[in-house]
Amino acid sequence: MINKPEFILLGHGSGGKLSHELIDSLFANYFDNPVLRQQSDSALLETESAHFAFTTDSFVVDPLFFPGGNIGTLAIAGTVNDLAVSGAVPQYLSAGFIIEEGLRYNDLKTIVETMADEARKAGVIIVTGDTKVVDKGKCDKLFINTSGVGKIAEKHTGIGSGRDIKPGDKIIINGSIGDHGMAVMAARNDLNIAADIRSDCAALNHLIKEALQVSNGIKFMRDATRGGLGTVLSEIVKEKHFGIQISEENLMINKSVRGMCELLGFDPLYVANEGKVVMVVDPDDAGKIMETLKENPFGKEASVIGEITEDHQGMAWLDTVVGGKRIIDMLSGQQLPRIC
């Protein structure tokens, strides 16, 4: 057994002895699986599928730990969700770590444990990875990149583009909005806010798989991460010959998230989520999709929030809580930096 270091040193990224110790004791240990065990420069994968989905995402959240998760939860769930909302079954992930010299070893260990745990829950394996250590001040504690591949059935290849969306389709979201962004904001010390808000970050691939099993009428999915629900809705209608009508009354926003948004002047529609999927579905199937979603813990608060309309093409409209109307536009500029 090697003595556990207290801090990550530049030597841990040198490619030499310290690097090997770190990889063996931490990454290979926690991410262990037959593909990773081959220890070759590339992971050799087998698949029977004709179509693949492939995605990548980098995670730079500040702070690394927040109520409801840490950067590791995001690194797995974020990439798994990007695959799942494309209609794919996530299978293999890579993990690249850029570590600032001086990061506490125990923090890194907790994050790696979380990643292993999330991956296990999502049913994916981490098959390749990389570690770099940079001088103090050259990055902020820890950045992670994960890429992922997953097989995708022929009949689901249209989900990513939403090519089959038409007026009358229903829009569903699997629960409350704004939790992740506000949880991270509250966790930042500079605001001095003590709020009881947990990030919603979670891998949604099982939830999505269950929905795809009961219906062939799911025409589009997207995870409403940075930019929030509002940005996803305006992306759906952008340059399209249909519009969207959303009912504000049907949006669920947790009380403390609402309170914090009021206080800081944020619109929950544009606050990030890390465990929310927006679905556009055939109206005939909306009922059974809702039933299926509600049986899963990550979908128990699912609701139909609006529909695709022939009116106001290319625009998303909101019926406000007081009976007025307004448009929903894409998030402009940067509402909250480094939330994922």
Binding site: D267, L318, D319, T320, V321, V322, G323, G324, K325, R326
Partner: peptide, 9 residues
């Protein structure tokens, strides 16, 4: 006024 769509009322 704009956020709540008051002009429409």
């Amino acid at each position: 006024i704009q956020k709540f769509g008051i002009p429409y009322l």
